[in-house]
Write a protein that binds this DNA or RNA. Structure first.
Lengths: 206, 206
DNA sequence: TAAGAATCGATAAAAAAATATCGATATGTG
DNA sequence: CACATATCGATATTTTTTTATCGATTCTTA
Protein backbone atom coordinates (compact mmCIF):
# COMPACT_ATOMS: atom_id res chain seq x y z
CA UNK A 1 0.00 0.00 0.00
CA UNK A 2 1.47 3.29 -1.05
CA UNK A 3 1.71 6.21 1.33
CA UNK A 4 -1.82 7.52 1.23
CA UNK A 5 -1.43 10.68 3.21
CA UNK A 6 -5.11 11.10 3.82
CA UNK A 7 -5.43 7.88 5.72
CA UNK A 8 -2.77 8.73 8.29
CA UNK A 9 -4.12 10.07 11.55
CA UNK A 10 -2.69 13.06 13.31
CA UNK A 11 -1.55 10.94 16.19
CA UNK A 12 0.38 8.65 13.91
CA UNK A 13 1.84 11.55 11.99
CA UNK A 14 3.25 13.02 15.16
CA UNK A 15 5.10 9.80 15.91
CA UNK A 16 6.65 9.39 12.49
CA UNK A 17 9.70 11.58 13.08
CA UNK A 18 10.50 9.58 16.19
CA UNK A 19 10.36 6.36 14.21
CA UNK A 20 12.73 7.83 11.68
CA UNK A 21 15.18 8.91 14.36
CA UNK A 22 15.06 5.47 15.91
CA UNK A 23 15.36 3.57 12.65
CA UNK A 24 18.33 5.59 11.52
CA UNK A 25 20.03 4.66 14.74
CA UNK A 26 19.40 0.97 14.09
CA UNK A 27 20.52 1.27 10.48
CA UNK A 28 23.72 2.88 11.70
CA UNK A 29 24.36 -0.20 13.81
CA UNK A 30 23.90 -2.42 10.81
CA UNK A 31 20.51 -3.81 11.82
CA UNK A 32 18.55 -4.98 8.79
CA UNK A 33 15.23 -6.03 10.24
CA UNK A 34 13.44 -4.84 13.32
CA UNK A 35 10.25 -6.15 14.89
CA UNK A 36 7.37 -4.07 16.11
CA UNK A 37 8.00 -5.46 19.58
CA UNK A 38 11.60 -4.26 19.57
CA UNK A 39 10.67 -0.81 18.33
CA UNK A 40 7.94 -0.58 20.93
CA UNK A 41 10.25 -1.58 23.74
CA UNK A 42 13.00 0.86 22.78
CA UNK A 43 10.67 3.73 22.12
CA UNK A 44 8.29 3.19 24.99
CA UNK A 45 5.21 2.44 22.88
CA UNK A 46 2.96 -0.57 22.44
CA UNK A 47 3.78 -3.17 19.80
CA UNK A 48 0.27 -3.12 18.42
CA UNK A 49 0.40 0.63 18.08
CA UNK A 50 3.69 0.43 16.25
CA UNK A 51 2.29 -2.12 13.83
CA UNK A 52 -0.71 0.04 13.14
CA UNK A 53 1.47 3.06 12.50
CA UNK A 54 3.84 1.21 10.25
CA UNK A 55 1.04 -0.42 8.33
CA UNK A 56 0.06 3.06 7.23
CA UNK A 57 3.45 4.31 6.14
CA UNK A 58 5.33 1.23 5.03
CA UNK A 59 5.30 0.33 1.35
CA UNK A 60 5.67 -3.35 2.21
CA UNK A 61 4.08 -5.41 4.94
CA UNK A 62 6.31 -6.66 7.69
CA UNK A 63 7.71 -10.14 7.35
CA UNK A 64 6.53 -12.69 9.87
CA UNK A 65 9.38 -13.82 12.05
CA UNK A 66 11.65 -10.98 10.88
CA UNK A 67 9.74 -7.78 11.21
CA UNK A 68 10.25 -4.70 9.08
CA UNK A 69 13.10 -3.94 6.76
CA UNK A 70 14.90 -1.01 8.29
CA UNK A 71 16.27 0.58 5.15
CA UNK A 72 13.01 0.38 3.30
CA UNK A 73 11.13 1.85 6.23
CA UNK A 74 13.55 4.77 6.40
CA UNK A 75 13.06 5.45 2.72
CA UNK A 76 9.29 5.23 3.08
CA UNK A 77 9.25 7.62 6.00
CA UNK A 78 11.52 10.11 4.28
CA UNK A 79 9.28 10.09 1.30
CA UNK A 80 6.21 10.33 3.48
CA UNK A 81 7.62 13.38 5.25
CA UNK A 82 8.61 14.96 2.00
CA UNK A 83 12.32 14.92 2.60
CA UNK A 84 12.79 14.02 -1.01
CA UNK A 85 11.24 17.29 -2.16
CA UNK A 86 13.52 20.22 -1.57
CA UNK A 87 12.25 23.21 0.30
CA UNK A 88 13.93 26.58 0.58
CA UNK A 89 13.78 28.53 3.83
CA UNK A 90 15.06 31.83 5.19
CA UNK A 91 15.90 33.01 8.67
CA UNK A 92 14.76 36.34 10.06
CA UNK A 93 16.90 37.52 12.96
CA UNK A 94 20.64 36.93 12.91
CA UNK A 95 21.31 36.96 16.63
CA UNK A 96 22.94 34.08 18.41
CA UNK A 97 20.18 31.60 17.71
CA UNK A 98 19.65 32.67 14.12
CA UNK A 99 23.33 32.39 13.35
CA UNK A 100 23.57 29.01 15.00
CA UNK A 101 20.74 27.73 12.86
CA UNK A 102 22.17 29.34 9.76
CA UNK A 103 25.41 27.47 10.16
CA UNK A 104 23.73 24.18 11.07
CA UNK A 105 24.09 21.81 8.19
CA UNK A 106 21.76 19.12 9.42
CA UNK A 107 18.82 20.55 7.54
CA UNK A 108 20.20 19.34 4.26
CA UNK A 109 19.44 15.78 5.36
CA UNK A 110 15.79 16.68 5.59
CA UNK A 111 15.38 18.29 2.22
CA UNK A 112 15.56 21.77 3.64
CA UNK A 113 17.80 24.39 2.18
CA UNK A 114 18.34 27.45 4.37
CA UNK A 115 19.42 30.02 1.85
CA UNK A 116 19.95 33.21 3.83
CA UNK A 117 19.29 35.20 6.96
CA UNK A 118 17.98 38.74 7.35
CA UNK A 119 18.47 41.32 10.06
CA UNK A 120 17.83 44.98 10.73
CA UNK A 121 21.11 45.67 12.46
CA UNK A 122 23.88 46.72 10.06
CA UNK A 123 26.42 45.03 12.33
CA UNK A 124 24.88 41.66 11.63
CA UNK A 125 25.08 41.89 7.85
CA UNK A 126 27.67 39.73 6.13
CA UNK A 127 27.91 35.96 6.14
CA UNK A 128 27.84 33.07 8.56
CA UNK A 129 29.00 29.59 7.73
CA UNK A 130 29.21 30.50 4.06
CA UNK A 131 25.64 31.76 3.96
CA UNK A 132 24.67 35.40 3.50
CA UNK A 133 23.07 37.68 6.07
CA UNK A 134 21.17 40.45 4.27
CA UNK A 135 19.49 43.60 5.55
CA UNK A 136 15.76 43.27 6.05
CA UNK A 137 15.07 45.47 3.04
CA UNK A 138 16.15 42.68 0.76
CA UNK A 139 13.71 40.16 2.22
CA UNK A 140 10.95 40.64 -0.33
CA UNK A 141 13.45 40.52 -3.09
CA UNK A 142 15.02 37.23 -2.15
CA UNK A 143 11.82 35.55 -1.06
CA UNK A 144 10.04 36.36 -4.26
CA UNK A 145 12.90 35.48 -6.53
CA UNK A 146 13.57 32.15 -4.83
CA UNK A 147 9.94 31.26 -4.21
CA UNK A 148 10.62 30.70 -0.54
CA UNK A 149 7.55 29.74 1.48
CA UNK A 150 9.11 28.90 4.83
CA UNK A 151 10.67 31.23 7.36
CA UNK A 152 12.43 30.68 10.66
CA UNK A 153 11.83 33.52 13.06
CA UNK A 154 14.61 34.14 15.56
CA UNK A 155 14.05 37.74 16.56
CA UNK A 156 13.42 39.07 20.07
CA UNK A 157 9.83 38.85 21.22
CA UNK A 158 9.29 42.56 20.81
CA UNK A 159 10.13 42.40 17.13
CA UNK A 160 8.34 39.17 16.36
CA UNK A 161 4.93 40.38 15.19
CA UNK A 162 6.41 43.01 12.92
CA UNK A 163 8.88 40.61 11.38
CA UNK A 164 6.10 38.11 10.95
CA UNK A 165 3.98 40.68 9.14
CA UNK A 166 6.84 41.54 6.82
CA UNK A 167 7.37 37.89 6.04
CA UNK A 168 3.72 37.27 5.30
CA UNK A 169 3.61 40.31 3.04
CA UNK A 170 6.35 38.90 0.90
CA UNK A 171 4.54 35.63 0.42
CA UNK A 172 5.82 33.40 3.21
CA UNK A 173 3.17 30.88 4.18
CA UNK A 174 4.80 28.86 6.96
CA UNK A 175 6.62 30.21 9.98
CA UNK A 176 8.64 28.46 12.64
CA UNK A 177 8.86 30.92 15.49
CA UNK A 178 11.28 30.87 18.38
CA UNK A 179 9.80 33.98 19.93
CA UNK A 180 7.51 33.23 22.88
CA UNK A 181 4.72 35.37 21.48
CA UNK A 182 1.41 34.48 19.90
CA UNK A 183 1.54 35.67 16.31
CA UNK A 184 -1.47 36.90 14.40
CA UNK A 185 -1.45 35.73 10.83
CA UNK A 186 -3.99 35.66 8.03
CA UNK A 187 -5.75 32.47 7.05
CA UNK A 188 -3.57 30.25 4.96
CA UNK A 189 -0.42 30.96 6.92
CA UNK A 190 0.78 28.29 9.33
CA UNK A 191 2.72 29.07 12.48
CA UNK A 192 4.55 26.57 14.61
CA UNK A 193 6.04 27.63 17.90
CA UNK A 194 9.34 26.29 19.11
CA UNK A 195 9.51 27.70 22.57
CA UNK A 196 12.65 26.38 24.19
CA UNK A 197 11.64 27.48 27.63
CA UNK A 198 8.31 25.71 27.32
CA UNK A 199 9.96 22.55 26.09
CA UNK A 200 12.25 22.59 29.07
CA UNK A 201 9.43 23.29 31.44
CA UNK A 202 7.37 20.45 29.99
CA UNK A 203 10.32 18.19 30.43
CA UNK A 204 10.65 19.13 34.06
CA UNK A 205 6.99 18.54 34.68
CA UNK A 206 6.88 15.28 32.79
CA UNK B 1 6.25 11.91 41.18
CA UNK B 2 3.79 11.04 38.55
CA UNK B 3 1.78 13.79 36.98
CA UNK B 4 -0.55 12.88 39.78
CA UNK B 5 -2.86 15.85 39.66
CA UNK B 6 -4.09 14.34 36.46
CA UNK B 7 -7.59 15.31 36.17
CA UNK B 8 -5.88 16.97 33.19
CA UNK B 9 -5.60 14.96 30.01
CA UNK B 10 -2.49 14.81 27.89
CA UNK B 11 -4.21 16.60 25.08
CA UNK B 12 -5.16 19.48 27.34
CA UNK B 13 -1.71 19.60 28.87
CA UNK B 14 -0.14 19.99 25.47
CA UNK B 15 -2.28 23.02 24.74
CA UNK B 16 -1.58 24.82 27.98
CA UNK B 17 1.65 26.50 26.88
CA UNK B 18 -0.12 27.89 23.85
CA UNK B 19 -2.84 29.36 26.05
CA UNK B 20 -0.18 30.98 28.17
CA UNK B 21 1.54 32.48 25.15
CA UNK B 22 -1.74 33.82 23.88
CA UNK B 23 -2.94 35.19 27.19
CA UNK B 24 0.29 37.01 27.82
CA UNK B 25 -0.16 38.69 24.49
CA UNK B 26 -3.64 39.83 25.45
CA UNK B 27 -2.48 40.98 28.87
CA UNK B 28 0.23 43.01 27.18
CA UNK B 29 -2.45 44.80 25.20
CA UNK B 30 -4.32 45.63 28.38
CA UNK B 31 -7.15 43.17 27.88
CA UNK B 32 -8.74 42.20 31.19
CA UNK B 33 -11.31 39.59 30.21
CA UNK B 34 -11.36 37.21 27.31
CA UNK B 35 -14.12 34.84 26.22
CA UNK B 36 -13.67 31.25 25.22
CA UNK B 37 -15.00 32.15 21.79
CA UNK B 38 -12.36 34.84 21.31
CA UNK B 39 -9.56 32.54 22.41
CA UNK B 40 -10.84 29.82 20.14
CA UNK B 41 -11.03 32.10 17.16
CA UNK B 42 -7.55 33.52 17.61
CA UNK B 43 -5.95 30.20 18.35
CA UNK B 44 -7.81 28.12 15.84
CA UNK B 45 -9.60 25.88 18.34
CA UNK B 46 -13.22 25.26 19.23
CA UNK B 47 -14.87 27.36 21.92
CA UNK B 48 -16.22 24.31 23.69
CA UNK B 49 -12.77 22.78 23.77
CA UNK B 50 -11.29 25.94 25.21
CA UNK B 51 -13.92 26.01 27.94
CA UNK B 52 -13.23 22.41 28.82
CA UNK B 53 -9.51 23.04 29.02
CA UNK B 54 -9.87 26.17 31.09
CA UNK B 55 -12.35 24.56 33.43
CA UNK B 56 -9.54 22.21 34.43
CA UNK B 57 -6.82 24.75 35.02
CA UNK B 58 -8.61 27.90 36.08
CA UNK B 59 -9.03 28.55 39.78
CA UNK B 60 -12.22 30.48 39.14
CA UNK B 61 -15.07 29.81 36.77
CA UNK B 62 -15.52 32.16 33.86
CA UNK B 63 -17.99 34.99 34.20
CA UNK B 64 -21.05 34.86 32.02
CA UNK B 65 -21.03 37.68 29.53
CA UNK B 66 -17.37 38.56 30.28
CA UNK B 67 -15.37 35.40 30.00
CA UNK B 68 -12.19 34.64 31.88
CA UNK B 69 -9.99 37.03 33.80
CA UNK B 70 -6.75 37.19 31.86
CA UNK B 71 -4.38 37.93 34.70
CA UNK B 72 -5.79 35.25 36.93
CA UNK B 73 -5.61 32.68 34.16
CA UNK B 74 -1.98 33.51 33.52
CA UNK B 75 -1.17 33.03 37.17
CA UNK B 76 -3.07 29.76 37.27
CA UNK B 77 -1.28 28.41 34.23
CA UNK B 78 2.13 29.44 35.48
CA UNK B 79 1.47 27.66 38.71
CA UNK B 80 0.08 24.67 36.88
CA UNK B 81 3.22 24.40 34.75
CA UNK B 82 5.46 24.81 37.75
CA UNK B 83 7.01 28.08 36.68
CA UNK B 84 6.87 29.17 40.27
CA UNK B 85 9.28 26.43 41.35
CA UNK B 86 12.84 27.07 40.27
CA UNK B 87 14.76 24.46 38.33
CA UNK B 88 18.45 24.45 37.57
CA UNK B 89 19.72 23.21 34.22
CA UNK B 90 23.05 22.77 32.44
CA UNK B 91 24.03 22.72 28.79
CA UNK B 92 26.33 20.12 27.28
CA UNK B 93 27.91 21.27 24.05
CA UNK B 94 29.04 24.87 23.67
CA UNK B 95 28.86 25.18 19.91
CA UNK B 96 26.77 27.78 18.17
CA UNK B 97 23.47 26.50 19.42
CA UNK B 98 24.64 25.80 22.95
CA UNK B 99 26.11 29.27 23.27
CA UNK B 100 22.98 30.87 21.88
CA UNK B 101 20.89 29.09 24.47
CA UNK B 102 23.34 29.87 27.24
CA UNK B 103 23.05 33.56 26.59
CA UNK B 104 19.27 33.48 26.18
CA UNK B 105 17.67 35.07 29.19
CA UNK B 106 14.10 34.10 28.47
CA UNK B 107 14.33 30.98 30.57
CA UNK B 108 14.26 33.00 33.73
CA UNK B 109 10.61 33.83 33.05
CA UNK B 110 9.80 30.17 33.20
CA UNK B 111 11.46 29.30 36.46
CA UNK B 112 14.48 27.82 34.74
CA UNK B 113 17.99 28.76 35.68
CA UNK B 114 20.66 27.70 33.20
CA UNK B 115 23.77 27.72 35.34
CA UNK B 116 26.59 26.61 33.05
CA UNK B 117 27.68 24.90 29.86
CA UNK B 118 30.22 22.13 29.35
CA UNK B 119 32.37 21.20 26.38
CA UNK B 120 35.26 18.94 25.50
CA UNK B 121 37.07 21.44 23.32
CA UNK B 122 39.54 23.62 25.23
CA UNK B 123 38.85 26.45 22.82
CA UNK B 124 35.26 26.66 24.00
CA UNK B 125 36.05 27.00 27.69
CA UNK B 126 35.46 30.41 29.24
CA UNK B 127 32.21 32.30 29.54
CA UNK B 128 29.29 33.36 27.40
CA UNK B 129 26.80 36.00 28.35
CA UNK B 130 28.15 36.07 31.87
CA UNK B 131 27.76 32.32 32.32
CA UNK B 132 30.63 29.86 32.59
CA UNK B 133 31.64 27.22 30.07
CA UNK B 134 33.51 24.42 31.84
CA UNK B 135 35.44 21.44 30.52
CA UNK B 136 33.44 18.22 30.53
CA UNK B 137 35.50 16.85 33.40
CA UNK B 138 33.78 19.22 35.74
CA UNK B 139 30.28 18.07 34.83
CA UNK B 140 29.83 15.58 37.66
CA UNK B 141 31.19 18.07 40.09
CA UNK B 142 28.84 20.87 39.24
CA UNK B 143 25.78 18.69 38.70
CA UNK B 144 26.15 16.98 42.03
CA UNK B 145 26.89 20.12 43.98
CA UNK B 146 24.00 22.05 42.48
CA UNK B 147 21.55 19.19 42.42
CA UNK B 148 20.86 19.75 38.73
CA UNK B 149 18.41 17.28 37.22
CA UNK B 150 17.91 18.81 33.78
CA UNK B 151 20.33 18.96 30.90
CA UNK B 152 20.18 20.52 27.45
CA UNK B 153 22.15 18.54 24.92
CA UNK B 154 23.58 20.56 22.03
CA UNK B 155 26.41 18.36 20.81
CA UNK B 156 26.88 16.92 17.32
CA UNK B 157 24.95 13.72 16.65
CA UNK B 158 28.08 11.62 16.83
CA UNK B 159 28.76 12.73 20.38
CA UNK B 160 25.21 12.62 21.63
CA UNK B 161 24.95 9.14 23.11
CA UNK B 162 28.22 9.45 24.96
CA UNK B 163 27.37 12.86 26.35
CA UNK B 164 23.98 11.52 27.34
CA UNK B 165 25.58 8.63 29.20
CA UNK B 166 27.89 10.97 31.04
CA UNK B 167 24.99 13.14 32.04
CA UNK B 168 22.93 10.22 33.29
CA UNK B 169 25.89 8.92 35.30
CA UNK B 170 26.12 12.16 37.19
CA UNK B 171 22.47 12.05 38.16
CA UNK B 172 20.68 13.97 35.42
CA UNK B 173 17.15 12.67 35.00
CA UNK B 174 15.71 14.82 32.24
CA UNK B 175 17.31 15.61 28.89
CA UNK B 176 16.29 18.01 26.17
CA UNK B 177 18.21 16.87 23.12
CA UNK B 178 18.85 18.83 19.95
CA UNK B 179 20.76 15.98 18.35
CA UNK B 180 18.73 14.05 15.78
CA UNK B 181 19.57 10.71 17.35
CA UNK B 182 17.52 8.29 19.40
CA UNK B 183 19.10 8.15 22.84
CA UNK B 184 19.14 5.07 25.00
CA UNK B 185 18.57 5.89 28.62
CA UNK B 186 17.76 3.86 31.72
CA UNK B 187 14.27 3.81 33.15
CA UNK B 188 13.55 6.89 35.16
CA UNK B 189 15.30 9.23 32.74
CA UNK B 190 13.13 11.31 30.43
CA UNK B 191 14.26 12.46 27.00
CA UNK B 192 12.56 15.05 24.89
CA UNK B 193 13.73 15.67 21.36
CA UNK B 194 13.84 19.10 19.85
CA UNK B 195 14.73 18.37 16.30
CA UNK B 196 14.70 21.62 14.39
CA UNK B 197 14.82 19.97 11.03
CA UNK B 198 11.84 17.83 11.90
CA UNK B 199 9.91 20.81 13.15
CA UNK B 200 10.57 22.58 9.91
CA UNK B 201 9.66 19.57 7.87
CA UNK B 202 6.41 19.14 9.79
CA UNK B 203 5.64 22.73 9.15
CA UNK B 204 6.19 22.31 5.45
CA UNK B 205 3.95 19.27 5.33
CA UNK B 206 1.21 20.84 7.43
C1' DT C 1 8.83 -32.64 5.55
C1' DA C 2 6.29 -31.64 9.75
C1' DA C 3 6.25 -29.27 14.21
C1' DG C 4 7.20 -25.05 16.59
C1' DA C 5 8.18 -20.30 17.32
C1' DA C 6 8.11 -15.44 16.21
C1' DT C 7 5.87 -12.16 14.03
C1' DC C 8 2.39 -10.02 11.36
C1' DG C 9 -2.38 -7.98 9.93
C1' DA C 10 -7.20 -7.65 10.67
C1' DT C 11 -11.03 -7.16 13.47
C1' DA C 12 -13.18 -6.01 17.85
C1' DA C 13 -13.46 -3.66 22.22
C1' DA C 14 -12.25 0.04 25.30
C1' DA C 15 -10.67 4.51 26.35
C1' DA C 16 -9.84 9.20 25.32
C1' DA C 17 -10.82 13.32 23.04
C1' DA C 18 -13.49 16.42 20.28
C1' DT C 19 -17.87 18.31 19.27
C1' DA C 20 -22.77 19.46 19.86
C1' DT C 21 -26.74 20.77 22.66
C1' DC C 22 -29.02 23.23 26.14
C1' DG C 23 -30.44 25.30 30.49
C1' DA C 24 -28.38 28.68 33.83
C1' DT C 25 -26.38 33.16 35.07
C1' DA C 26 -24.91 37.57 34.99
C1' DT C 27 -25.06 42.05 32.56
C1' DG C 28 -26.61 45.89 29.98
C1' DT C 29 -30.78 48.37 28.12
C1' DG C 30 -35.37 50.07 27.21
C1' DC D 1 -38.05 46.09 36.46
C1' DA D 2 -38.35 42.96 32.58
C1' DC D 3 -36.15 41.39 28.69
C1' DA D 4 -32.63 40.34 25.29
C1' DT D 5 -27.96 38.74 24.98
C1' DA D 6 -23.44 36.98 25.66
C1' DT D 7 -21.30 33.69 27.93
C1' DC D 8 -20.66 29.87 30.88
C1' DG D 9 -20.78 24.82 32.66
C1' DA D 10 -22.77 20.36 32.45
C1' DT D 11 -24.39 16.52 29.96
C1' DA D 12 -24.81 13.85 25.81
C1' DT D 13 -23.07 12.33 21.38
C1' DT D 14 -19.82 11.39 17.97
C1' DT D 15 -15.29 10.67 16.42
C1' DT D 16 -10.61 9.38 17.08
C1' DT D 17 -7.08 6.77 19.19
C1' DT D 18 -5.37 3.09 21.88
C1' DT D 19 -5.39 -1.52 23.41
C1' DA D 20 -6.67 -6.45 23.16
C1' DT D 21 -7.50 -10.77 20.75
C1' DC D 22 -6.66 -14.20 17.42
C1' DG D 23 -5.95 -16.66 13.12
C1' DA D 24 -2.41 -16.49 9.26
C1' DT D 25 2.33 -16.51 7.57
C1' DT D 26 7.06 -17.71 7.25
C1' DC D 27 11.25 -19.29 8.75
C1' DT D 28 14.04 -22.73 11.68
C1' DT D 29 15.09 -27.13 12.95
C1' DA D 30 14.60 -31.72 14.15
Amino acid sequence: MATAENAVSKATFSRVPAYLRYLKGEAGKGVEYVSSAAIAKDMGLSAVGVRKDLALISSRPGKPRFGFEVRRLIADIEKFLGYDRWTNAVIIGAGGLGRAILSYEGFENYGIHVIAAFDNAPAKIGAVGGKPVYPMERLGDVVKRSGVKVCILTVPRSAAQEACDRAVETGISAILSFAPVHLRVPDGVTVKYEDLAVSLAELCGA
